[in-house]
Simulated scan of single mutants.
Amino acid sequence: MNETSKQLLKLAHAYSHELSQHEVIRQYWGELSLVLKGSVSRGNSDRYSDIDFVFFCEEDDLGHIHAAYHRLGLTDRTDGVFIPIGEWAGHYHFESYATLQGYFDKHDFPQVWEFQQSIPIHDPRQRFSGLIERGSHEFMKEALPFIKNRYLDLHLTLDWMRHPLRRGDSISAHLHAARIVQELCRIAYLLDGKSYPHDKWVSTFLPTTRFGEKHGAEILAYLDVMPNRHNVTAHAELAEYACYAEAEALIGKAGAFIREHYGEHPWIEHWYNYV
């Protein structure tokens, strides 16, 4: 944890004490879990970071809390009572434990990743910690179906990119190439049986994965071969387009990684029969 994160973590504990005295929150304090997430909890804060709190409570309490905030004129928002603290030193909102469980049940990878990295600041009944532990234990026990879907999406995106390339449509080709980088980053986490971050951080933590440690530099270097606005020559052979040929090679490395760690599967080679 860097020094900025340590300083903000201390501030988070101070704000936690203040929030415990809040006219609405104090009524539910014994039942609430207060969680610190974001760059502070991950330990990589910088000058742009703030304190990102989430309160978790029962679904019924969530409705009562929302109603109390509105009745007291503390907010006019309807998206979870999103409230700034300390003149935008941070902010907080409310979610239910059922919503948290739903992130695991629905395999909402970025949200699961976010809360797996978080720090419980106030969790008196271990509701949040217990849910994260149980959910993480079951989560991605069978990773291969998710890996397969992401791998097929990679091939399909590459296949779609050939049309704008041959037509000389550099904007569309660029969008497909960016999608390939995104999907390669995401599959790196899935290949380890883990959830992946939101796009804001998906490349930052890429080296923490086995595939990312091995091929992360190549994946990010692929950005350099994305077509610029006016440099796509129409009607060329696909192998002549670096953004196509290099993407095909990177996807091939993902396929090789799957073979090495998950065994041979017909959809690796014959992906077109499965999309």
Results as ranks from 00 to 15, higher is better:
1 M>Y: 06
2 N>F: 09
4 T>W: 04
6 K>G: 12
8 L>T: 09
8 L>H: 08
9 L>W: 11
12 A>Q: 10
13 H>M: 13
13 H>L: 15
13 H>S: 14
14 A>L: 14
16 S>I: 00
17 H>W: 04
18 E>Q: 14
24 V>I: 15
25 I>Q: 10
26 R>T: 14
27 Q>K: 13
28 Y>P: 04
29 W>D: 05
32 L>I: 04
33 S>K: 07
33 S>H: 02
36 L>G: 07
38 G>Q: 00
41 S>W: 03
41 S>C: 05
42 R>C: 08
52 D>F: 05
54 V>R: 05
57 C>G: 01
62 L>Q: 09
62 L>I: 04
62 L>C: 08
63 G>I: 08
67 A>S: 13
69 Y>M: 10
71 R>A: 14
72 L>F: 11
73 G>D: 08
75 T>A: 10
77 R>S: 12
78 T>C: 10
78 T>L: 15
78 T>G: 15
81 V>A: 07
81 V>R: 03
83 I>M: 15
83 I>T: 15
84 P>D: 14
84 P>W: 13
88 W>G: 13
90 G>L: 03
92 Y>R: 03
93 H>I: 02
95 E>V: 05
102 G>T: 07
105 D>N: 10
106 K>N: 14
107 H>G: 07
110 P>L: 08
110 P>D: 07
110 P>V: 05
111 Q>Y: 09
111 Q>P: 02
112 V>Q: 01
113 W>K: 09
114 E>P: 00
115 F>Q: 02
117 Q>M: 09
118 S>C: 11
118 S>D: 07
127 R>D: 00
127 R>C: 00
129 S>E: 05
131 L>D: 05
132 I>E: 01
133 E>W: 02
133 E>S: 00
133 E>K: 10
135 G>A: 02
136 S>C: 05
139 F>T: 11
145 P>I: 06
145 P>R: 06
146 F>Y: 12
146 F>D: 00
148 K>S: 04
151 Y>G: 03
152 L>E: 00
153 D>F: 06
160 W>G: 00
161 M>T: 11
162 R>Y: 00
162 R>L: 06
164 P>L: 07
164 P>G: 10
169 D>Q: 00
171 I>N: 03
174 H>M: 12
175 L>W: 09
175 L>N: 09
176 H>W: 08
176 H>R: 09
177 A>L: 00
182 Q>M: 09
182 Q>T: 13
183 E>T: 10
184 L>K: 11
187 I>S: 09
189 Y>G: 02
194 K>G: 02
196 Y>A: 08
197 P>M: 02
200 K>F: 08
202 V>W: 08
204 T>I: 11
204 T>N: 11
213 E>V: 01
214 K>L: 12
216 G>N: 09
222 Y>S: 01
223 L>A: 11
225 V>C: 15
225 V>W: 13
226 M>G: 14
227 P>M: 06
229 R>S: 15
235 H>M: 12
238 L>N: 13
241 Y>C: 11
242 A>H: 14
242 A>W: 05
242 A>R: 15
245 A>T: 10
246 E>G: 07
247 A>I: 04
250 L>S: 10
250 L>W: 06
251 I>Q: 03
253 K>M: 10
256 A>V: 03
257 F>A: 11
258 I>Y: 03
259 R>W: 01
259 R>T: 12
259 R>P: 05
260 E>N: 10
260 E>Q: 12
260 E>H: 12
261 H>L: 01
262 Y>D: 06
266 P>M: 05
267 W>K: 07
270 H>R: 12
271 W>D: 00
273 N>V: 12
273 N>I: 12
